[in-house]
Design a protein around this nucleic acid. Structure first.
Lengths: 238, 238, 238, 238
DNA sequence: GATGAATGAGTGTTCATTCAT
DNA sequence: GATGAATGAACACTCATTCAT
């Protein structure tokens, strides 16, 4: 729907005759490759991820892989990028403006609930995201992910506590993201038995952060009022 | 007991008569190599960390490096291992049993304060720790680090909220570690400007987690009393 | 049963439909590589045999070599192993049971005649065999070669002089092998001018050994008869 | 006595003050080094023979080794060369001209008896000699050994069967050497249990070769007489 | 003389990428 | 489009040799 097909499509060939069926097959192949790459990452880690493995797992030859991606890095990029897209879609879909949600805590819980399946479903990606920074070429993407997701989240938060500075909102957004991300990784990849406990802690922390934000919001509102009063000549009296 | 780095030292020969000056030079070189490796990790990430680079950064030739470490992995191992040792020492030194601290929140704050300089001083290590899991040979070390540090922390927490189950303590310890670690990484490596804000959030979360723990502690204590009353024949009446 | 070289073949995939032309090319390349390795051994000895040299001599790049063999050792192994196979085939084909040959001397001459072309044709192999023991990884192969070839030969000898102990047969087989091998190496690699003389000496020695064996055979047979007489109640009388 | 110290002695320093004691110590050190090298070869083979190992086994530092030998190859050269020297001495000492021995078979048996302890005593050398050809730099030495030893042996044989051509003598000498060498190696290094059997076979072969030689000698003598008769005017008449 | 830390060319091996088929 | 053999730069590691001490 929304994906503008970032890098992917071959594109070094002039548009042939009957495009559509080929494009479709191509897109399906791309999907297969990405899924294969994800599975391989999950099984062997980034270190053992070779183009041969990806191709084999996708049922292609090495050369075939290069028909769809200009290089190995592009596969990772697409994988992460696609994940980002899903994230963005998921988070954008529950923006307070759309859902009419007024409660920050409730909102953040929704964020978590909406994000959790993305960790559970797409194989290998959660591992990939954690290691994104170890692939220098993908650092830019990591930053973009951070920026976009955080922007989205910060914006939503700002809607709900409008008096808190954008800076503050961004930092809370980041803290929330870190909490969500690493506690999810912990409870999915490392310690699935104690997932419930981790979720508890996440809730506790999130609740505290939310309360803190609301408090700040109030403080700021009060400060503004005072400031406004001071600015304007005392109205009413005369 | 205290040896901070029993790892490498040349040592082809049993300690001769007056080898001290040479040993000292050797230890100094090891230090230089580790520092160089740290710096290189910081600059180019684990992926670009080659033996050549480490050696060059340490002012040695490749062969020279191998005089002090049996292989590349050993350098990383030593780096992480040494960091773990410092951590353990630092955390062990502020164990409630030693300091007499009775307040969980105060204790955790001390942990943070004591841990923070380790992130700031040793270059590259915080990055290394995050990526440890991507080096298959070092996964064992990562688990050991987790186990030891978490154990230490969990034990300390257990001293302060004795009625909470060990499991619970371990999970809180882990959550705290995650919070400390990633928020420190965030505020040191990525966004030093907003370090103060991140620290605030850390405090808020930590405070919430502590409060939650204490609550649980009380609940457990009450439960135990009730249970004890039920177990023992009601004293007094008869 | 007969597969002469089950060693390498790429084979990343189960045999597809009509792979034959490619397989053939692959097998041909393997042949080229082995020939190249043999030539290189002949020219520079095992010490100077590097993967680069082998590859270059075979008209490949280093990487290409690894498409056909998992490592350098495997090339040597294949070379020696293939030689062993040819030997075994050649020697097995002239087993007394098959040819009906009753004369030990004639048999050993046939062995020599059948073995000689293998030294002359395959370049480098005779040198390789001599040095096999200097490559620790190939010592096992050397022992296997010894075991198999010697076993074959010893077995054949045993058929022709059945009363001689198996031990004795093995040692003669080994002596014969040593004689054949080193005198052939001498006359092919070192002193081709005097090949005829060396062959004379080989014949002389072999004849002497054969005579000696036959003598032993007779002696043993006599011993057995005596023993049988002693064992059985004297037949005839009653 | 005889050894002219082929390469060995340091020699890149002008003769100092009080030489003799130092030279003596030096010679002793050389001896130690060679023994150490021999032992190391015996234990780990040529492949694992590094300068570090030799030095360590000799109780020296690497640098120390280079004080006595210009390079690693020189150690091997000295080792083999010294062995050659012993051989030459041993064989020269039993030359028919010296011992007055008239019997070829008896002579060759003496050769074997005199040579055998050299294989048994000097550790590693028999292995070294076998592998000499794998060190290209030492091929020259191997040829020299062959030449000198063979020359000596051929000369002795020629004394005992004077009518046989020098060529023939050389080839028999070589055959005898091969027999002695490889059967000794076989019975010392590989199959010490069956040493007696191998020795039997050696004797059988040697006896046959000797008989063959004597026959040839007679034949040649007869041929010469005939030739002389034809050349000279019939001597009887006058 | 003696040491052993340091050198660096050289080795086996891997793997992203290309290209003839 | 699809293949997979071929490439070759890059890597971890070794070891004979040197040289400041």
């Amino acid at each position: 729907m929304d994906q503008p097909a970032p890098i992917t499509r071959p594109a070094h060939k002039p548009p042939g005759k009957r495009r559509i069926p080929q494009q479709e097959r191509g897109i399906k192949t791309i999907e297969i490759i990405l899924a294969a790459a994800g599975t391989e990452i999950e099984q062997g880690g980034l270190a053992k991820l070779t183009t041969k493995r990806i191709a084999a797992a996708a049922g292609l030859s090495v050369g075939g892989l290069y028909e769809y991606f200009p290089n190995k890095e592009a596969v990772l990029h697409a994988l992460a990028s696609r994940w980002l897209e899903q994230f963005k879609d998921a988070i954008a879909a529950i923006h307070p403006n759309l859902t009419g949600c007024k409660d920050l805590f409730r909102y953040l819980t929704m964020v978590y609930e909406v994000v959790k399946p993305l960790y559970q479903q797409v194989p290998g990606v959660s591992g990939l995201i954690s290691l994104l920074s170890s692939v220098p070429e993908l650092k830019a993407l990591e930053e973009e992910i951070d920026l976009q997701l955080n922007g989205l989240l910060a914006d939503a938060i700002h809607c709900l506590v409008p008096n808190v500075s954008t800076e503050q909102c961004k930092v809370v957004a980041r803290t929330i993201t870190i909490l969500d991300h690493y506690l999810l990784v912990e409870s999915i990849l490392r310690d699935p038995d104690k997932a419930a406990l981790y979720e508890d802690h996440r809730r506790v922390c999130q609740y505290a952060l939310v309360t803190n934000m609301l408090l700040m919001n109030e403080r700021e509102r009060a400060a503004m009022l005072v400031k406004n009063k001071a600015d304007l000549p005392s109205p009413g009296l005369s």
